[in-house]
Design a protein around this nucleic acid. Structure first.
Lengths: 351, 351
DNA sequence: TTGTATGCGTTATCAG
DNA sequence: CTGATAACGCATACAA
């Protein structure tokens, strides 16, 4: 017959005198206070449960808990209660400051609601995304906010438990989870209108991966509005933007339109200092754009609202409320720098 | 006598026919395959344990596991094994792209080593830091990388289990954990030398929180090298930089030195377009600096090496190796933009 | 080669 | 008001 104990290497808690290398447990406190684990648990739980315990034992237990430096084992609690008070945010590229800001705000907001955030990065790699989508529920997260990659619809439905609170950020997928995003049509129209008023007619287009809905949609709508002299596709990185500019060198477009800010930054990196640079049209803010010696216009999304929207969409699901949740769709605004304004007012179209 | 079952609301696993809302467990598979949990556990564990199981049952079990869509409950495993294969990275400001890049690389590297990363943000708020330092070990992380705030020495020692694998990033604290950082003296000397060669003599200084070792040290060393006309202190945000520039407006310093990139960006935000802008000297890269119409020099840290250093320092600790770990101290390099180079070569000091 | 039993630390049920 | 006890799902020492 197997004897109890001596299964895993036992912690050093027993050795009295020196600081324990691992926190005391309910059992330790129960022993110390001559009570039972249940009592200790109730006292430490606080609230209604604790109210039913006599003041005397309550004090005795709390005192011992403090003295022994008790720290609840959240893993055990999680296993028992099936709640972790942890939400995961799976972004597609944490190196992109745009996601950094989102993450910052989401964390802050969730924190106020008693949740901590586990931030993960798929790095725009579908395999990594799959891996995380599989892993995170196993780790016992209570909810998930995700910026989905390419073909994630099937993937999401296959990998995620159907009852996991879920919010899609930036890239909604009809019929899957709740979502928070910007109105791509409005954004693109805004950008195009602004470019047009500055006299742009012939443009070059730099486009991120077409599988990603935002890039695809933006490119479509832009193409419908302007005469596209040339187009360059690639991953949504600065390098792609840089390559694109080189390719466009001889074309003399009125504007170069990029389907996101990273591409825009890449183009600008490559421009250097030329005589009459084309206008750069982009989505989301380009760093330091107001000081650049290049006309720039961006259709920027409202980051704080996006972040808060995620939490707004997630919380009722976490609370187990079943009513249908409406997608949140936000409006973008146009931001231009001084060079752009000069070009727009001073001289209409080029030449 | 308490009857078994009916304790927590039971999952819908029992209902056959529709997809289970929660993954099957070892017990389910054991039942299904007419074996025991231990056998199933061994088969699914793979490796040495699985080798000791007959091919027949092994196949039967694996087949059932796949068919039933088994997913190990990592929380339970964690509780049992006391390992989570999760490392936390606690940064001071995830909205800062510098940390975003670090996080990106650390995650990538840890991932290769079989760990997933939990990224948390203290937002430069000591209370939040304390909270996370207390919380994370309770959540069962295997190791921690932290960019410590102000007075974290005591805090770190009090809150963290002494045997938790620990790496301090960017801001070493003598005697606490392993560390990865840049040589502040070298960086500052490099920056000052470069500024001096461009003719800077009188400077203004913008400094982040003095409690943070990097800001304090940089400010000290810079002050020793130049004639400091004025100084502005505040949190390491763009706003502080902007305020500083306003304050410096009438002073006409040769250069404005900032103890980090956020402050530098703030100053540049405020500069707008002036006739003869001062040189901006800063630590770490300033976005789009090569295109700015302002002379800029930065002492930049090697982000990939910092990130890889964290992992290098952490892994042996995770493996339980006890040998002393040497701090990693990296060298920075100077980066200047074209305007700076013009000023440095074309004309020495200002008029 | 396989099954039985125990415990990780917690919460929740049930019986005093 | 309090204590004994059963799970949560998994891994493992031990017995067979």
């Amino acid at each position: 017959m197997p004897r109890p104990g001596g299964d895993l290497p036992s912690p050093v808690r027993a050795i009295s005198g020196d600081p324990p290398t691992v926190s005391a447990t309910l059992v330790d406190i129960a022993k110390e206070t001559q009570t039972s684990v249940s009592t200790v648990s109730r006292v430490l739980a606080g609230g209604a449960a604790a109210a039913r315990i006599s003041q005397a034992t309550r004090d005795r237990v709390s005192e011992a808990a403090v003295r022994m430096g008790y720290r609840p084992n959240l893993v055990a609690r999680s296993l028992r209660t099936r709640r972790s008070n942890t939400v995961a945010l799976l972004v597609s590229d944490i190196a992109n400051p745009w996601f950094g800001q989102i993450a910052f705000l989401v964390e802050q907001s969730l924190h106020r609601h008693g949740y901590s955030l586990m931030l993960c990065n798929s790095g725009e790699d579908p395999d990594r995304e799959v891996e995380y989508l599989r892993l995170l529920p196993q780790k016992g997260i209570d909810g998930l906010i995700v910026v989905p990659l390419a073909r994630s619809k099937k993937v999401l439905e296959e990998l995620l438990p159907p009852d996991l609170p879920l919010v899609l950020l930036d890239r909604p997928i009809p019929g899957v989870g709740a979502s928070v995003s910007s109105d791509q049509a409005q954004a693109t129209t805004l950008l195009c209108d602004t470019l047009e008023r500055a006299g742009a007619r012939d443009i070059a287009l730099v486009c991120g991966p077409e599988q990603i809905s935002t890039h695809r949609r933006r490119a479509e709508l832009v193409s419908a509005r302007f005469n596209v002299l040339a187009r360059h596709d690639g991953p949504a990185t600065r390098e792609t933007g840089t390559q694109a500019f080189v390719k466009f060198l001889s074309l003399q477009p009125d504007a170069i339109v990029c389907t996101n800010n990273f591409l825009g930054q890449g183009v600008i990196d490559a421009i250097g200092e030329v005589e009459a640079p084309p206008i750069i049209g982009s989505f989301d803010e380009i760093a330091m754009m107001h000081l650049l010696p290049i006309p720039v216009v961006c259709a920027v999304q409202d980051i704080p609202l996006l972040a808060e929207g995620c939490v707004t969409q997630l919380l009722p699901q976490l609370r187990g409320e079943k009513r249908e949740i409406q997608p949140i769709v936000l409006t973008t605004r146009a931001v231009t720098n001084r060079r752009f304004q000069e070009r727009a007012t001073g001289w209409g179209a080029r030449s």
